[in-house]
Every structure is written in structure tokens, then in C-alpha cells.
């Protein structure tokens, strides 16, 4: 049977939403599993058939991870240590999630802010005054393609020499430098979108250079800069390798903290990890919510006309 054009369009639209729904499920499933696991008692972490939605929801995982409450009974589903016959007692006292949260907030926040500020200023210079040639811009991006593992040895040696090992400053500097290329490239794409004539119009109407940037350029690239900020924040917030190897005892960040719940002598404690992961994710979601109106515009890289 021949379909009319509008029927065809409708069919296509149904088809499209079906695919998007499936895709959404695939993407959202790990998050669902993370949140779900964080509320499960110990015995359900590995149970088969898997428990999708627990009927014995508990806040125990959160209490142990975030409040260091370590009272533990068999009723909570604790394992019995096969050697001693006693209830497993996890050594949570060694973990400091709140310190890690504080460190991560300072390090990621500061590094990201610095990267976006310096990056966008640099990008403005490149976009308007070609202060970096095209090949320099690509070299900048290449810098980012060096695997971090290559940097670790020289940097830790060097950091030890100048006393930056295991310090917040050390990590801020490193995160700032490694995310600068992203910041420059992303913000440049937004600044390029602002026509030069718009700035010249402001200038000839009597605006100073700074006033022009402040009143004309900045409002037009704000969404883009916000998107850049979130993108870099996600990267620095969840950076693991450099943080693990450049911090020893003092400066622990959340991803490193997360790893401490895994592979320790007690075995894998997925419920606690999940509870910590939820805590790690919430700030990002929160930031995303605050700036959501900028994101659709920013992440479309100007494809949507302003």
C-alpha cells in the first residue's frame, strides 16, 4: 500500500524515536546499575539471577562510605570470613572520601577555571590576531595526544625536585596544562563564530577593545565557554592515572579514592564503590543542571543559529 508523504514522515519519526529510546537505555544502563547497586545489601551484588531493583534497599553502603559508620551485622548481608569465622570488618578508617571530595573540588575546579580563562584568551588571540599559526595550533593539540603514561616518569622526578609531588598545586598545574589544548580549540571554535564585523561595529561606535570583548564577544560565546568548562571539568574530575602516580599520601582525589575500594584484601566491595561513585557523580550532575540552558547551545558548536 502506498503511503502518503505525511504517513511516511510519521513512520520515520516513530522509527527514529524507537532507536533513540533503545540508545538511551544502553547509555543509561550503567548509571542505573551504579545507583541500584549502591542501595543493595552485600549479598545481592553478585546474586544470580541479577537483582535489578532491590527489595531490601539499604543506606548502609552510603553510611559506611560517607559517614564511616562501621557497625555491621549478618542481617545486613555481611560475609563471614571463612578463616576466622567472624564478620568481615572493612577498614574504612583508612579511607577519607570527604578529604578526597574537597581535594577534587579544589583541583578540578581551579584547573578547569584556569584552563578556560587562559584558553579562551589565547583562543581570542588566535582567532582575531593569529598569534599562533595554524601549525602551532596543531602542535598544541598534539601535545594532548601524548599518552599521559609517557609523562609520568619525568614529571614525578621533576616534581620531586621542586617539591610539587603530592601537592594540590602540582596537580592543578598539570591538569591546567593538559586541558589547555582542549580549552583553546573548543573556545576558538566559538569565537570564530562571532563575525569580526560585529566587533568592528562596536569599535567604531566608540567601544574600547575591552568593552567590545565584554559587551559583544563574551555574551555571544558564553554558552560555548560554559560547555567547554563542563567538558574539561568532567575530564579533570575523573582523571585517575596522573592523580594516582603524582600523589602519595596527602593529596587524594576521588577517582583514586574510588580505587581503594577495589582490589583490597577484603575483595571487591561493589556496593561501597557504587555509593562513592554516586557521590562523585552528583556534583557533575549538579553543575550540569545549573548550566543546562547553555549546554544545548554550546555543545551544538554553533550549529544551531543564535
Amino acid at each position: 500500500m502506498a503511503m502518503t508523504l505525511s504517513q511516511k514522515r510519521q513512520t520515520f519519526s516513530v522509527f527514529r524515536y524507537a532507536i533513540l529510546t533503545v540508545w538511551l537505555c544502553i547509555v543509561a544502563f550503567p548509571m542505573f546499575w551504579m545507583v541500584g547497586t549502591s542501595f543493595k545489601p552485600d549479598r545481592e551484588w553478585f546474586s544470580w539471577p541479577p537483582v535489578y531493583i532491590t527489595e531490601n534497599a539499604t543506606l548502609r553502603n552510603y553510611a559506611i562510605v560517607w559517614a564511616n559508620i562501621n557497625e555491621y551485622t549478618k542481617a545486613d548481608g555481611a560475609h563471614i570470613d571463612p578463616k576466622t569465622g567472624e564478620l568481615s570488618q572493612y577498614t574504612q578508617s583508612l579511607q577519607r572520601p570527604w578529604t578526597a571530595l574537597r581535594n577534587s573540588t579544589i583541583i578540578a575546579g581551579l584547573a578547569t577555571t584556569l584552563a578556560v580563562i587562559f584558553g579562551s584568551v589565547l583562543a581570542y588571540g588566535v582567532s582575531r590576531h593569529q598569534i599562533l599559526s595554524e601549525s602551532r595550533m596543531f602542535q598544541l593539540l598534539m601535545l594532548r595526544m601524548v599518552p599521559p603514561i609517557v609523562l609520568i616518569a619525568p614529571i614525578s622526578l621533576w616534581y620531586r625536585q621542586i617539591g610539587l609531588l603530592d601537592t594540590i598545586t602540582g596537580l592543578v598545574i598539570l591538569y591546567f596544562l593538559t586541558s589547555l589544548p582542549y580549552a583553546v580549540w573548543m573556545s576558538k571554535s566559538f569565537i570564530d563564530e562571532v563575525p569580526r564585523e560585529m566587533e568592528q561595529a562596536a569599535e567604531i561606535l566608540g567601544a574600547s577593545r575591552w568593552r567590545t570583548i565584554w559587551e559583544v564577544v563574551l555574551p555571544l560565546v558564553r554558552s560555548g565557554l560554559v560547555a567547554t568548562f563542563l567538558f574539561i571539568l568532567i575530564l579533570t574530575w575523573s582523571e585517575y592515572l596522573l592523580a594516582l602516580l603524582l600523589s602519595k599520601a596527602e593529596v587524594l582525589t576521588l577517582p583514586v579514592e574510588l580505587s581503594k575500594y577495589q582490589g583490597s584484601t577484603e575483595g571487591r566491595v561493589y556496593g561501597r564503590q557504587a555509593a562513592l561513585s554516586v557521590g562523585i557523580t552528583i556534583p557533575l550532575v549538579f553543575v550540569g543542571l545549573i548550566i543546562r540552558k547553555h549546554l544545548a547551545r554550546g555543545f551544538s558548536f554553533g550549529m544551531v543559529r543564535r
Binding site: 563575525p195 564585523e197 560585529m198 568592528q200 561595529a201 562596536a202 567604531i204 559583544v216 555574551p219 543564535r306
Partner: peptide
């Protein structure tokens, strides 16, 4: 005073 081909109005 200058008038541009693209009009160059401030869209915001």
C-alpha cells in the same frame, strides 16, 4: 559611522 554589509547588529 559605518554600516556593514552584514548589518552586524548585536544579536543578544
Amino acid at each position: 559611522g559605518m554600516v556593514f554589509q552584514s548589518h552586524a547588529l548585536f544579536p543578544h
